[in-house]
Amino acid sequence: MSSAFDRIADIIAENSEVKREDITPDSHVINDLGIDSLDFLDIVFAIDKEFGIKVPVEQWTQEVNAGKAPAEQYFVMKNLAARIEELVAAKGQG
């Protein structure tokens, strides 16, 4: 099984104009890759389906907007992959 990072990077490349080779663990999904909100919606839908989870984007966005969490915690690729792995693990425990 590919890593969460690779699976997410593949999804981003398939659902946007970003080239797969341009996506690195340190890429910020919005600032570096330039994903707009509509493409991001498609990407989240694809991630939800791929991993069988519900990515809590609204909660993450609220935390960032309220200054309770840095955007990098959720939107830099390696961290996004870690968050997804946590969600998958939590689902397995539930």
């Binding site: 989240v44 389906k49 809590p56």
Partner: peptide, 9 residues
């Protein structure tokens, strides 16, 4: 067919 966070399909 899908109930996401802040969206649905």
């Amino acid at each position: 067919i899908h109930d996401g966070s802040g969206y649905a399909v």
